[in-house]
Amino acid sequence: MDRQFATVTRASTGIGYEFARICAREGYDLLIAADEVDSEKAAADLRREPGAGGVKVLHLDLAKQEDIQVPGCHQGRPIDVLMANAGRGLRHAFLDQDRPHSRCHRHECDGTACLLHKLGNDMRRRNQGRILIAGSIAGFTPGSF
């Protein structure tokens, strides 16, 4: 029997990593779509999870329009589960952030919406698939830190 295929965005750390870990333990082949430096380490750790299938990394930045269109997101397979995890805090005070950098959050959310639209329509055509949308509130609104 073929394993089902899951894609998790921002799966290198935090809640995205935990989502990817659940998929690995449930026996999914897994694609981590992330632009973070810890992506390869996260993939190596996920490969050691009991029941894990294949784990690959696609370096993808959802704040960049060109990355949203990347056909490699499918890896030539239909996606059975998409866990779209977008938005995260920048780990320092809002007023200390570089304003152009903080605008990336909006673009990342827009990019996630584009990805959801594309892959959601693929799932609807097949009448099969599941989507979970998540993200840190710190990625969407300024806070005291």
Score class of each variant (00 low, 15 high):
Glu108Ile: 02
Leu31Ile: 01
Gly76Glu: 05
Leu30Ala: 00
Asp2Ile: 13
Asp61Glu: 06
Leu58Gly: 07
Ile131Tyr: 10
Lys64Trp: 07
Ile15Val: 15
His59Met: 08
Gly139Pro: 05
Gln4Ala: 12
Ala6Arg: 06
Ala42Arg: 14
Thr13Gln: 12
Ile79Gln: 13
Leu31Pro: 06
Ser39Ile: 00
Gly16Arg: 09
Ala113His: 06
Ile133Phe: 09
Val55Gln: 07
Arg21Gln: 15
Gly27Asp: 08
Gly72Thr: 04
Arg48Trp: 01
Leu90Lys: 00
Ala43Arg: 14
Gly87Cys: 00
Val55Tyr: 08
Asp2Ala: 14
Gly135Pro: 04
Arg106His: 10
Arg106Gln: 12
Val70Asp: 02
Pro50Cys: 04
Asn121Cys: 11
Gln65Met: 06
Asp122Lys: 01
Val37Trp: 12
Gly87Lys: 04
Val37Glu: 15
Ala42Val: 09
Pro78Thr: 11
Glu66Lys: 15
Lys118Gln: 15
Arg99Thr: 15
Asp67Arg: 04
Gly76His: 04
Ile32Leu: 15
Ala86Pro: 03
Asp67Tyr: 03
Gln128Met: 11
Gln128Val: 06
Gly76Met: 05
Gln128Arg: 14
Glu18Pro: 03
Leu132Lys: 06
Val8Asp: 10
Gly87Met: 00
His105Pro: 00
Glu18Gly: 05
His117Met: 03
Asn127Glu: 10
Asp110Glu: 12
Val70Ile: 07
Gly72Cys: 07
Asp45Ser: 09
Ala11Trp: 04
Cys114Arg: 11
Gln4Ile: 00
Glu36Tyr: 03
Pro142Phe: 12
Leu30His: 00
Gln97Asn: 14
Ala20Pro: 03
Pro71Tyr: 11
Arg130Trp: 09
Val81Lys: 08
Val55Glu: 10
Arg124Trp: 01
Arg77Asp: 12
Gly111Ser: 11
Tyr17Gly: 05
Asn127Phe: 00
Tyr17Cys: 06
Leu82Asp: 04
Gly120Cys: 05
Cys23Asn: 05
Gln69Ala: 15
Arg21Val: 13
Gly27Phe: 04
Asp96Glu: 15
His107Phe: 10
Gly76Cys: 09
Met123Phe: 00
Ile133Tyr: 01
Gly72Arg: 15
Gln65Asn: 13
Lys41Ser: 15
Gly54Asp: 14
Leu116Asn: 09
Thr112Phe: 01
Arg106Thr: 14
His59Glu: 09
Val37Lys: 14
Cys23Arg: 11
Val55Gly: 06
Asp122Met: 03
Leu95His: 11
Val55Met: 06
Gly87Val: 03
Asp45Ile: 02
Gly120His: 03
Gly76Thr: 04
Val55Pro: 09
Asp96Arg: 13
Leu116Glu: 01
Phe140Trp: 05
Glu66Cys: 13
Tyr17Trp: 11
Ile68Lys: 03
Gly120Tyr: 00
Phe140Tyr: 07
Leu132Gly: 09
